[in-house]
Amino acid sequence: MASSMALHSQVREDIALSKDKTGMKWVAPFDDATAKAKKDQRILMVKPIAFGTDNKGCW
């Protein structure tokens, strides 16, 4: 099926997270995420990671 996943984010979907191809449209940094949440009237879904991310954004 042709991917019909919407591409919502117009702000930085950051370089550090670009290796994630799971389809999640992560928005970073936090300032951009909060700005987008305000603009789009959306809720932030925040995943804090406790023990180390590498420079590819993997955890």
Binding site: M5, A6, H8, A16, L17, T22, G23, M24, K25, W26, V27, A28, P29, F30, A33, K36, A37, D40, R42, I43, L44, M45, V46, K47, P48, I49, A50, F51, G52, T53, D54, N55, K56, G57, W59
Partner: peptide
């Protein structure tokens, strides 16, 4: 994934200042 992208702003970060995120 599809509901997250349509209705939420997904954000992940590292709590530690040693992490890349």
């Amino acid at each position: 994934v599809s509901l997250s992208n349509r209705r939420f702003i997904p954000f992940a970060f590292d709590l530690s200042n040693k992490g890349g995120l």
